[in-house]
């Protein structure tokens, strides 16, 4: 049994409210699964289209590079499946960036679920951004329930999401760049930071997402 399988909790019965974590070649899937288990949510790490489409919540983690990630999604047909998801969906870090039409990382065509572009930070900043940055909510949202300012979350990114204001729920600043920390369009949410690595506040944001 591999370490990954140990933390998989398969659906026990048909009406089981399953949380699917999308399995592809750019996940830090174990960290997300560990975080969910910590407050009692069970999940399944899967690339099965049927399970992803019927899951109550879908989490799309990400760490790695855009081009190989998109290539792997396409090979598995998941690029098409993801767009069909109707339940709450959360893309984390690269998983959020892949929701945009285009990433400057390897000049990659992505999923085009919401408008904008993924851009490289200007090189007068240290790249990647690594560490805890403050996020500023710009709209009311269920994700912020029971969370007080200041909200510090953990980021690791060389690229940032530039999108229309209507898609943005929270922003952060890195040097002179102001970028989207949380985005939302319809049922699709994305966080540039890693909630699974952001201490108690991160867990609360994840929990709020799971309660949507």
């Amino acid at each position: 049994m591999t370490r990954e399988q140990k933390i998989c909790y398969p659906a026990l019965k048909e009406n089981y409210n399953m949380i699917a974590i999308i399995k592809y070649n750019a996940g830090n899937v174990a960290s997300v699964a560990n975080a969910l288990l910590r407050f009692g949510f069970e999940c399944e790490i899967t690339d099965d289209p049927e399970k992803i489409l019927t899951a109550d919540k879908v989490i799309f983690p990400g760490q790695g590079r855009a081009r190989p990630a998109v290539k792997d999604l396409k090979r598995k047909g998941l690029d098409v499946i993801i767009k069909k998801i109707k339940n709450p969906f959360l893309g984390i870090c690269l998983g959020m960036q892949l929701l945009l039409p285009f990433s400057e990382e390897d000049q990659t065509e992505c999923l085009e679920i919401l408008e904008g572009r993924v851009k490289l930070f200007p090189n007068d900043e240290r790249i990647p951004q690594i560490g805890w940055n403050e996020i500023i909510p710009t709209k009311d949202c269920q994700l912020f329930v029971d969370i007080q300012n200041p909200i510090y979350t953990y980021f690791v990114n060389s690229y940032y999401v530039d999108t229309e204001e209507k898609n943005i729920l929270a922003t952060y600043e890195y040097g002179k760049t102001k970028a989207a920390a949380i985005i939302k369009k319809n049922n699709f949410y994305g966080t540039q930071f890693h909630p699974e690595k952001s201490g108690g506040i991160g867990l609360k944001i994840l929990e709020n997402f799971l309660k949507l």
Partner: peptide, 8 residues
């Protein structure tokens, strides 16, 4: 550590 600590 990964299971019990949720900071990097």
């Amino acid at each position: 550590v990964a299971k019990e600590i949720n900071i990097p």
